[in-house]
């Protein structure tokens, strides 16, 4: 099962982030919402329309920006937009005006007649985005839209996403970049192995971690004696084995000398240290015992 008991609600004007590593089930979730996949159980509603029973009505409210660029390479930007606008029932002056708007919005107004195959990766990403927002959808699904995008285009794309939310669109944004999620999303659901393992606002999620830092030590450890040594340090042991010791503790930077001394006392050989301040990354590590990008 790709996703299991995933449940959340996103509202107009907010950016809802689905955060998780590759294979966590984010794209499957998007597939169920967009009607590409039929869920074996449960219901998905878009603006009150059930995506299975009222698929056409639900899809009319949706704008989808797929993870892979989905454009006709042999057509121009303008022609691609005209085609995808037609797929959303747009025509005549409304279509022409909106094409002009989104081309300006995405900074492609000077390259409208060039075949897409001559575009850079970033330009294709922007056009891919433009095709998704052309019909001013009520719900916008963005599936990892910044993968493989240069930093300049990424900033521009994130600004565009914020702009869509400001205009009242409900944005569902999937990513495995925490910093993007932290910078962009009002609400977040963290997924792993097809399940939502944590959900809430950024503040709520941070509070789950407390003010405790995450300390990751690599080297050679005897798990039993390392566990005993750390109990003296007021540290929560998240994970320990022969090569890794993962701790959650407050004021970790001040306690580092004492930790090293305690571990040396039980014969441990510390070769690497990573200290992470409270973040979505550290929350993910705390919840799953692994890094987001693993």
């Amino acid at each position: 099962m790709a996703v299991d008991s995933v449940s959340f609600a996103a509202h107009p004007g907010e950016i809802f982030g689905l955060l998780g590593p590759n294979g966590a089930g984010k794209t499957t979730t998007i597939g169920c919402i967009s009607g590409l996949l039929t869920p074996s159980a449960g219901r998905v509603k878009v603006m009150g329309h059930d995506v299975v029973r009222e698929g056409t009505a639900a899809r009319a409210k949706l704008g989808v920006v797929p993870q892979e660029i989905a454009l006709y390479e042999d057509l121009s930007a303008h022609e691609n937009l005209a085609y995808w606008g037609g797929a959303q029932g747009m025509r005549n002056s409304r279509l022409r005006e909106r094409i002009q708007q989104v081309l300006e919005l995405t900074g492609l107004q000077d390259r409208t007649r060039e075949p897409v195959k001559q575009f850079s990766g970033g330009m294709k990403r922007r056009l891919n985005f433009a095709c998704g927002i052309l019909h001013s959808p009520k719900v916008l699904l963005l599936d990892e839209p910044t993968v493989g995008v240069d930093p300049q285009s990424r900033v521009r794309l994130l600004d565009l996403v914020r702009g869509e939310a400001r205009s009242g669109t409900c944005v569902l944004y999937t990513t495995h970049y925490m910093e993007e999620a932290e910078a962009l999303c009002d609400h977040l659901a963290i997924m792993d192995h097809g399940k939502v393992i944590a959900a809430g606002t950024l503040a709520e999620l941070r509070s789950m971690l407390g003010e405790r830092d995450l300390l990751r030590l690599t080297g050679v450890f005897a798990p039993q004696s390392a566990r005993a040594a750390m109990q003296q340090m007021d540290a929560e042991i998240l994970q320990v084995d022969e090569s890794l010791l993962l701790l959650s503790l407050a004021g970790a930077s001040q306690k580092l000398p004492a930790i090293f001394a305690a571990l040396a006392g039980v014969g441990a050989d510390v070769r690497g240290t990573t200290l992470t301040q409270p973040s979505l990354e550290s929350l993910f590590i705390k919840l799953t015992g692994k890094e987001l990008r693993e």
Partner: peptide, 13 residues
């Protein structure tokens, strides 16, 4: 392969 078929499946047509 261009993904346009998949994208079309997310539209009302």
């Amino acid at each position: 392969s261009w993904g346009t078929l998949r994208r079309l499946a997310t539209t009302p047509v």
